[in-house]
Design a protein around this nucleic acid. Structure first.
Length: 483
RNA sequence: GCCGCCUUAGCUCACUUGGUAGAGCGCCAGAUUGUGGCUCUGGAGGUAGCUGGUUCGAAACCAGCAGGCGGUACCA
C-alpha cells in the first residue's frame, strides 16, 4: 500500500448520527410549523451565491476565503457558500421584487458556512432557521418577529429569554455624548457588547484606555473621556427594571436630549404594545440596552435569545453556549441591489446550537431505535428471512435481515448495539414446527440485571418466546408499542 | 489574527532528570453447535503529531510547522 490518508473530518465540521439528526429535524419541523402559523411561506435558495451578492465580506483574489468559503467559477466569477440566510433572501427579494406579494414574509432553513476559527459551540457548518418580513417599516413587524421567536421556543419547550434593544438608542446615546468619530463609535458599541462577559468594570475599562485579559493580551479601549463613560454605564444599567415599560421610562431619562434616541424609544413603545397584545409575558421578552449584535448591519430593533438552561459538558464544566438565536431590523440590505430602500426585519433560530444544548442537557434524549433484526442462520433459508422482513415492514415496523457473516452471538450483539426492540429467530427448529422465536431485547435487558450466573442467563432466555408463525407480527407490534 | 498551555493504542492517560513503550476502557475471539449482560482467558491494535537539530543513543532536550484546548480579537 502507498499513502494512507488519515480518517478525520475537517476542523469545524462534524458528523451527525441518528440521534442528533432526530433532534435537529424535530427543531426544524416545530419551528417551521410556528412560522407557517404566523403566515410565512417557505423558500429555499442555493448553498452558493455570487460573492458580490453576499455583502460586504467580499472575497478578492488575494484573500478569497476570509470569512467565507469561496471559489472561482469557470467563467472566473467568484462564488461563495452562504454565511447566513438573510443575504440570499435580500438577493432573492431584489431579483423578484415586482412579482412578490409585499410585504414579503418567508421562512427558510438549511446549513450555512463560515470560514473562521471553530470552538465549542462554534462550527464552520451549522444550521439556521430564519423568518423575515421584507417591505414593512412598522415596529409592529419587529414585534411580530419577537412574538414569533417566543412562540417558537415555547413550542420547543426550551426556556429562553429574548433580550431586545434598538440601535437608534445607541446612536442617540453616542450623538448626545458628542462621539462622532466612527472608529470611536464602533469601540463604544463593542465595549457595551461585552457587558455580560466582563461586567460594568470591564466595560468601563474598554470605554476608556483599555483592558488586559487573563493571557496578558491588551485590548485597546475606545478612549472616551471619564465624563462620557459614566453616562454609557448608566445607559446599559437601565435594563434592570422589572417590566418593559419601566425600562423605557428609565431610558427616556438618560436620552432626553437626543432626537434619535427618542425615536428609538417610540419604536420600542409600539413594539411593547404589540407584543403585549400578542400575549408575550414580561419575563419572556425584556428590553436590554446592553444588546448590540452585528455592527454596521442592523439599523433598528435588535433581538437576542438567551438560553436559560445550564449546560454542562462530559466533564461537568459549564459550557458557554452563546446566544441560541437572534435578529433585528436591517433596512439597507435589499437597497444594495435595487437602489431602492426596502425595510426588513427578521429572526434566526440557531438550530445547531440549540440541538447541541439540548443534547448536553439531556432535555432531548436521542432515542434512536434500531429496526427489528432477523437473525440469519443458514444460507439456504435466506428467503424465509426476507419474507418475514417484508411482512413486518408491511405492518409498519422497521425490520432488517442481518447481512453480515458472523455467528449467532455476534448477531445478537449487533441487535443490541442498534438498540433494536426485538430479534427474530427462524432456525431449523422453528422451520420444522412452523413457528418463530422472538426475543424482547428491552425486557431481556431488564431481567438480566437480576441474573449474575451466565449459564442461568443463557439458558433462561429472558424475554424470549416461541410462538406460531402466524402470530409473529402481532407479538412484534405489542413489543414495539410497549416501549 | 494575538497570548498561554497541550499532542504517546479507537478513547482516557502512565512511562522516577535521554537507554528504541504500558494500563484501564473499548474492539475481536474463545469458555457457551442457536442467544445481548456479568465473569474468566486469549488476541489484534503504536513510525510516541510532522520535519529537522543536539547526542553513541530521543517519546523525553532544542527549533520550525501542523493540529488540539483555553483566553482575547472578529463575528454578517
Amino acid at each position: 500500500m502507498g499513502f494512507r490518508p488519515e480518517a478525520r473530518s475537517p476542523r469545524g465540521f462534524i458528523d451527525k448520527r441518528a440521534g442528533q439528526i432526530a433532534i435537529e429535524r424535530h427543531l426544524i419541523a416545530t419551528v417551521s410549523k410556528v412560522y407557517e402559523d404566523f403566515g410565512f411561506e417557505a423558500l429555499q435558495t442555493p448553498a452558493f451565491e455570487y460573492a458580490d451578492a453576499l455583502g460586504k465580506f467580499l472575497p478578492d483574489s488575494d484573500r478569497p476565503n476570509v470569512g467565507v468559503f469561496a471559489q472561482q467559477d469557470d467563467d472566473e466569477q467568484w462564488m461563495a457558500l452562504r454565511y447566513d440566510l438573510t443575504a440570499p433572501l435580500a438577493r432573492f427579494a431584489a431579483q423578484n421584487w415586482e412579482t412578490l406579494p409585499k410585504p414579503f414574509r418567508r421562512y427558510a432553513f438549511g446549513p450555512v458556512w463560515r470560514n473562521e476559527k471553530p470552538g465549542p459551540g462554534r462550527l464552520r457548518e451549522f444550521m439556521q432557521c430564519d423568518a423575515d418580513i421584507v417591505g414593512s417599516d412598522r415596529p409592529e413587524a419587529d414585534a411580530e418577529m419577537i412574538a414569533l421567536a417566543v412562540a417558537g421556543y415555547k413550542a420547543l419547550d426550551v426556556p429562553v429569554r429574548l433580550r431586545i434593544n434598538n440601535r437608534k438608542l445607541l446612536n442617540g446615546l453616542l450623538a448626545s455624548l458628542g462621539v462622532v468619530d466612527s472608529v470611536q463609535q464602533l469601540g463604544v458599541l463593542r465595549a457595551i457588547d461585552k457587558l455580560d462577559r466582563f461586567g460594568l468594570e470591564g466595560v468601563a475599562l474598554l470605554l476608556g484606555a483599555g483592558r488586559k485579559d487573563e493571557s496578558g493580551d491588551f485590548t485597546k479601549g475606545a478612549q472616551l473621556p471619564a465624563t462620557a463613560i459614566q453616562p454609557v454605564l448608566d445607559f446599559v444599567s437601565a435594563g434592570g427594571a422589572a417590566t418593559r415599560a419601566e425600562v423605557l421610562e428609565k431610558l427616556a431619562a438618560v436620552l432626553v436630549n437626543s432626537a434619535e434616541g427618542q425615536a428609538g424609544l417610540e419604536d420600542l413603545a409600539r413594539i411593547n404594545t404589540a407584543v403585549t397584545a400578542m400575549g408575550v409575558a414580561e419575563d419572556a421578552a425584556i428590553f436590554d440596552p446592553g444588546i448590540v449584535r452585528g455592527l454596521e448591519y442592523y439599523t433598528g430593533p435588535v433581538f437576542e435569545a438567551e438560553l436559560l438552561l445550564q449546560t454542562l459538558d462530559e466533564k461537568g464544566n459549564l459550557v458557554q453556549m452563546g446566544s441560541v438565536g437572534g435578529g433585528g431590523r436591517y433596512d439597507d440590505l435589499v437597497a444594495r441591489f435595487t437602489g431602492q430602500p426596502v425595510p426588513a426585519t427578521g429572526f434566526s433560530f440557531g438550530v445547531s446550537r440549540l440541538a447541541a444544548a439540548l443534547a448536553l442537557t439531556g432535555t432531548a434524549k436521542a432515542a434512536a431505535r434500531g429496526p427489528i433484526v432477523i437473525i440469519a442462520f443458514s444460507e439456504s433459508d435466506m428467503g424465509e428471512y426476507f419474507k418475514l422482513a417484508a411482512e413486518i415492514r408491511a405492518a409498519g415496523l422497521p425490520a432488517e435481515v442481518y447481512l453480515g457473516r458472523s455467528g449467532m452471538k455476534a448477531q445478537m450483539k449487533y441487535a443490541d448495539r442498534r438498540v433494536s426492540p426485538a430479534a427474530v429467530m427462524i432456525g431449523e427448529d422453528e422451520l420444522k414446527s412452523g413457528s418463530v422465536t422472538i426475543k424482547d431485547l428491552d425486557l431481556g435487558r431488564d431481567l438480566a440485571a437480576q441474573i449474575s450466573d451466565n449459564k442461568a442467563w443463557r439458558e433462561g432466555r429472558p424475554g424470549q418466546v416461541t410462538l406460531p408463525r402466524a402470530e409473529a407480527i402481532k407479538h412484534l407490534k405489542s413489543i414495539v408499542e410497549s416501549n
